[in-house]
């Protein structure tokens, strides 16, 4: 399905703008019990966003930076959703996983063609199993958060980290880099790029950094850009939603001085 974008210059036009929080999809690796799953975005999520080569690039960055909590040669099931994959693409995917010492074993898909390709490539195939798994996006995401994502590298320009839980970066988030988390974001370094916490609308989400030099911060559906002349401080800071929008405070005291008001959906002084 291809959507024809409305290229209107008319500001007053009431074309609905898709909220930031919904532009959200990424290939991701999940653990359930002893099994590991690689989840591909489904076709509607991927739409217009990226070509396969971009998706592979994203996966490589993700696997390299991610804390390796699996044993070498761990087998992985691919949840291919409704994506059409050919033998070549499955091969590429298997090679990328191989580099991270993961081994592609099973392909779970709702598409017949993908199932045929997977069988040709010598992988186990499971069809239509998706509905029974809690892993389908949309089912588990609204209520529970995924395990935090530990990222052990600098997030450089052009790299996008997206995660269904909180993101912890050991390194800098450089300008041009992007971190989007459904939960909180912690940057153990300099935050100079763009961070979006509470990406599914959680106004309670916070962004913490040892040094805040961001280009833009987003929490839930609010956006804050950096001041023209940011005040220099050596303190680590936390960004949160207050009555006037996104605010910064000293991170050390935050837990003592602020609490979240469910009633107003903002952080208030204790």
């Amino acid at each position: 399905m291809v959507v024809d974008p409305k290229l209107s210059l008319d500001w007053s036009s009431d074309t609905p703008v898709s909220p930031l929080v919904e532009r959200y999809s990424q290939i991701r690796l999940k653990q359930e019990g002893d099994s590991w799953f690689l989840v591909l975005p489904n076709q509607s999520e991927l739409e217009g966003k990226s070509s396969w080569s971009e998706l592979w690039q994203e996966l490589k960055h993700y696997l390299q930076g991610r804390e390796k909590s699996w044993q070498p040669r761990t087998s992985v099931s691919l949840l291919a959703q409704d994506q059409l994959l050919d033998v070549q693409q499955l091969q590429t995917l298997a090679e990328i996983l191989e580099e991270a010492e993961l081994c592609l074993e099973t392909v779970v898909t709702t598409r017949r063609q993908t199932a045929v390709a997977a069988a040709t490539g010598g992988y186990c195939v499971e069809q239509n199993k998706l509905s029974q798994l809690s892993l389908t996006p949309g089912l588990d995401t609204t209520t529970t958060l995924a395990e935090p994502l530990y990222f052990n590298q600098t997030v450089r320009s052009g790299i996008e980290l997206r995660h269904e839980g909180s993101i912890i970066i050991f390194g800098d988030l450089n300008p041009g880099g992007l971190a989007i988390a459904v939960g909180d974001i912690f940057v153990w370094g300099r935050l100079r790029g763009l961070a979006h916490a509470g990406a599914k609308g959680n106004r309670k989400a916070r962004i913490m950094a040892l040094q805040m030099e961001f280009t833009q911060l987003r929490i839930a559906d609010l956006v804050a850009r950096s001041p023209k002349f940011p005040p220099k401080t050596d303190q680590s800071e936390v960004a949160f939603i207050a009555g006037s929008g996104i605010c910064l405070a000293k991170a050390v005291d935050f837990a003592k001085t602020h609490k979240f008001s469910e009633q107003y959906g903002i952080w208030i002084d204790r």
Binding site: H61, R156, S157, N174
Partner: peptide
């Protein structure tokens, strides 16, 4: 910075 990221991925 972008290029370094791409090289690392490769």
């Amino acid at each position: 910075d972008r290029v370094i990221g791409l090289l690392e991925a490769e």
